[in-house]
Simulated assay, not measured.
Amino acid sequence: MYDLIASPQQRTYLIARPGVRRAVQLPAARYEELAAVAAADGLVPGWAADAAHRAWGLDLAGRPLNGAVLVRPRTRLNYSRATWEVNKGCNFNCEHCYLAQRRFEGLPWKDKVRLIDMMCEAGVLWLQFTGGEPTIDRDFLRAYAYAAERGMLLEILTNGSRLHRDDVLGALTAMKPHKVTVSLYGASEQSADSLTRTPGSFRLVMKGLKAAREAGVPVEIAIIVTTHNAHEVDQMRAIAADYADRFSQYASISPTYDGQPDPLAVQAPEHQRRTAVFDGCPAGHTFFHVDPFGLATMCKIGRENPIDLMETGVAGLLGLPAVADAQMLRAGGCTGCTFAKKCRVCRPVAKAMQAAKAPLQSYCRHGEGT
């Protein structure tokens, strides 16, 4: 594995270290120098060795560049991030899940490899594995290893139930992820297991968090506040403080991405906070989402007009910005809205909320009485 990754990122260039948050921005000339040295199979330049020592304590002086630093090429598409729904299947049955269906199915291994290659070719540096529960996919471990070898910084969005497994921990310690984000659904078996509708889920999550902490895996916790656990928010924060590098709290529950209202039943309105005015999103332009069958969309919610990457190849992503722009237009139930420039949600989320007949106060300025 590489110690560092040098990569174009939109209009800049970065050197990053897998498993570490800190990155170093490069001038274009320095990136070009690294690319030339890599092509000539030369040694790590002195300035790069100095920068690596200052930023990460690495000693790269006198080492061959190839093998120590992966220099990723410029790409035609220049995407930065992607989320990959490896498999919609899950070992939990959460009441608030935004997925319309949770079928355990997806691409065969050879097509997963092809998809990872396409994401690299598109320029993706940060890749999030998600689901369903990604760690239960039969190909997760080798997909994770292959993506790391291709030079991507990896995040796993997980329920944490399998983090204690030797094979999973082995992969995460041998190839450190950028981060592992664990969803926390309660501070007790009663609250968590009732939300996940899976007996024993809380015990598995806590077992996974303890194992990850002991192994030194970088963990963030996403505290999911619902009617099942709203009385335990302080206790969930305490767990997060003990087991994670940082945590976030979420109380805005979405309908399923196709507008089914069922998840909204567990929303705890008293814990919702007003979000900032939505002033745009680069979805479809600098990042994209891919489902278990290689269908690319602007994001997890805006899934209209998907692009079949298995059919089009990476060139299909050239059409994604136009698809995203069309979905972001305020139309349908938002046509003529006097609060259009002060809306707090994007158009795909608003559309799903409207389809689910969600209460206006949960997503719309009209419901705030302002």
Rank of each mutant, 00 (worst) to 15 (best):
M1S: 04
L4W: 02
Q9K: 07
V20W: 01
R21H: 13
A29I: 03
A29P: 11
R30P: 11
A35K: 05
A40S: 15
A40E: 13
A51P: 08
G57P: 14
L65E: 06
G67W: 10
A68T: 08
A68Q: 14
A68M: 13
V71D: 04
P73H: 02
T75I: 02
T75G: 08
R76M: 12
L77D: 05
N78K: 10
S80T: 11
A82Y: 01
T83F: 14
G89K: 06
E95G: 05
H96S: 07
Y98Q: 14
A100S: 15
F104K: 01
L107C: 00
I116V: 12
C120G: 09
Q128F: 12
T130M: 02
T135I: 04
T135R: 00
I136K: 07
R138P: 08
R142Q: 01
Y144G: 08
A145E: 15
Y146A: 14
A148R: 07
R150C: 10
L154S: 11
E155M: 15
T158K: 10
K176C: 12
G186C: 06
S191K: 03
D193S: 02
D193F: 05
D193Y: 02
S194Q: 01
T198H: 05
S201N: 08
R203Y: 09
L209F: 07
K210S: 01
R213S: 06
E214I: 02
I221P: 01
A222F: 05
V225R: 01
V225P: 02
N229S: 06
I239N: 06
Y243F: 15
D245G: 15
Y250F: 15
S252C: 15
P255T: 11
P263V: 14
L264S: 13
L264I: 12
E270S: 10
E270I: 04
R273P: 01
T275G: 08
V277F: 02
F278G: 09
F293H: 07
G294M: 10
G294S: 12
A296N: 00
M298V: 13
N305V: 08
D308N: 14
L309E: 14
M310G: 13
A315F: 01
L320P: 04
A322D: 15
L329W: 03
R330Y: 04
A331Q: 05
A331F: 07
A340P: 09
R344Y: 09
R344I: 07
R347L: 03
A355H: 06
K357W: 06
K357L: 12
